[in-house]
Write a protein that binds this DNA or RNA. Sequence first.
DNA 1: TATGAATGAGTTTTCATTCAT
DNA 2: AATGAATGAAAACTCATTCAT
Lengths: 182, 182, 182, 182
Amino acid sequence: MKSAILEAAEDLIAANGLSGAPLAQIAKRAGVAVGTLYNYFADRDALIAALFEMRRATLRPRLRAAVTAGEGLAFEARVRAFVREVFAAFEAHRKFIKVAIETEHHRLTPGTTAKDLMSTIDELVKIGAKEGIVAAERSELLAIAMTGALKALVLRRISSNAKLDDAEADGLVSLLLDGARA
Amino acid sequence: MKSAILEAAEDLIAANGLSGAPLAQIAKRAGVAVGTLYNYFADRDALIAALFEMRRATLRPRLRAAVTAGEGLAFEARVRAFVREVFAAFEAHRKFIKVAIETEHHRLTPGTTAKDLMSTIDELVKIGAKEGIVAAERSELLAIAMTGALKALVLRRISSNAKLDDAEADGLVSLLLDGARA
Amino acid sequence: MKSAILEAAEDLIAANGLSGAPLAQIAKRAGVAVGTLYNYFADRDALIAALFEMRRATLRPRLRAAVTAGEGLAFEARVRAFVREVFAAFEAHRKFIKVAIETEHHRLTPGTTAKDLMSTIDELVKIGAKEGIVAAERSELLAIAMTGALKALVLRRISSNAKLDDAEADGLVSLLLDGARA
Amino acid sequence: MKSAILEAAEDLIAANGLSGAPLAQIAKRAGVAVGTLYNYFADRDALIAALFEMRRATLRPRLRAAVTAGEGLAFEARVRAFVREVFAAFEAHRKFIKVAIETEHHRLTPGTTAKDLMSTIDELVKIGAKEGIVAAERSELLAIAMTGALKALVLRRISSNAKLDDAEADGLVSLLLDGARA
DNA sequence: TATGAATGAGTTTTCATTCAT
DNA sequence: AATGAATGAAAACTCATTCAT
């Protein structure tokens, strides 16, 4: 029930944005009465927060796992493994990822998947810097650029109904580590 | 008067988001009565649209100029010049740029500065591909990544009250063309 | 509840006209909150339309019945029966009849009781023409005049709190069929 | 100037009703600024009232004249002359007559042409009664019916862009005095 | 006198939240 | 727990009226 409600909310937010998902519509789509929403969530904000936290609870472990996935490998291979894992995780939650990226700057969605992605990438880049693979003075920039590039790529692919596969992941990693020159 | 209203709207949207700027507050901050807003804009949507179009009218020529800024130069220098120009333009409109990037996916803000940036970068990357500097098979990815990285960097700097200067621009270009390796 | 709201609207419109019945007053008189109105009607226009349609649904069958009331009788007797029935029906809905006649030409009230009356009278007059009782070349005029005269008489009686009884009906029919000469 | 404003108001009211004629539109159509309206009329109500009074000032004398038009003639001829005169007067002010009849029951238009018509007809009918032509017990009814029938006929003809000529007038008089029988 | 931008009270409309069943 | 009608505060919108120029 709770998750049926959250899925209904997710659908509507994905389609119409955060302010295009009134409780009446969420309830209708979830097949329950409005009043029922209040048996599961204190208020609208809490419902939205719960949606983001539910997905976060699923995605954060996978992001964490993605960091450790390539442990022992050379840095490039490790980053490649990381991005492949991230893409796989996002692929499994396309609708929410769209929502998470699009509403990233909204008051109601602080500290959610977008932030988790950022901090995970930070962590990974620091490893590269410590290993001397990534130029120290470029590491902050790399982290920011990688996060931005990844989100842009993901959103693009989701919006055009294209897959997020390993080739896509490898391409992004090559670009960021070796540049775009021919 | 019209622009005082739009600036008030910009301030409020920058502070509280698109749905955190009721007409009563906009009017108050602009120092006019609510009714006055309707002397200048058909309705709330039109006011918001006008804000984005006003800034767009200022920024688009600068983005276009940024593309031609480095004409004749080698591609890397040209991209460098482009990003420096873009940063200079964004620096002059920090508040709006924050708003434009944060609300990029909102129903009320289609075809605005964020799109102009994307298409401008597209154009530039195509030149690099034609010149053989950018690997053809990487050009789409480069355009997406560059747009995403640039927006992420800009937003980060604006949010932390840091400048968007030439050094920042050069760093981003190096990263994208040559990669992050030490 | 729905009909309490419509009755409140009817009262206010009868007293102050269509534009003298704001939703706040309708709600107050109906003993509900303003928001409640929107649980029953899409918007103000829909509420007004519903009022006219509700009464129409009641009155139209009675007008139809009035046409058949005198079937088999000689034409004059038939018309007499018709007008008596109409008066009885109107008598039972004085307040609405007042509203319906007074707002007959308003944008929000097309195709309502006033039109039904007109078309019903048309039908009846055609019967009289076919039977040769009414001069063919006078039938259109008779229909128009009868409708106008009937509405004027009804409105007059309602406004002066006078009854609409059989004598009144018979008087009108005599006048229209035989003229006013002594 | 004043009459240009009143004509603009008349046009708009004829087209959209009393509540479909905001001052801004009236001013625009009259080719003046809103503020100017207040140099000629105390407020909106006064403007509307002035429109009705201006026309009334023109029409009332013609209605009065219509009563005396047939003095000396036999009653039927006199009524015929009266209705012909009325039709001629109304024909010359079709737009206003439409407005006057349609808004007859509005708060802002008491004691105007519609009432003048009624009282004029009353007067005429009384003459017929005194002369013994109209049955005394039918005179009130005749007056009401004649007024209603006349207004209905006029409105019908104006709405369908048909003329109000002498034949039309004669037809109405015959109907009311002699009835519709073949 | 003419102008038309500015005003703000009045009205409509939305929607999260409550609560009796 | 589930329901959904009722609520009313907040927001959008309209328009007669004012007033500085």
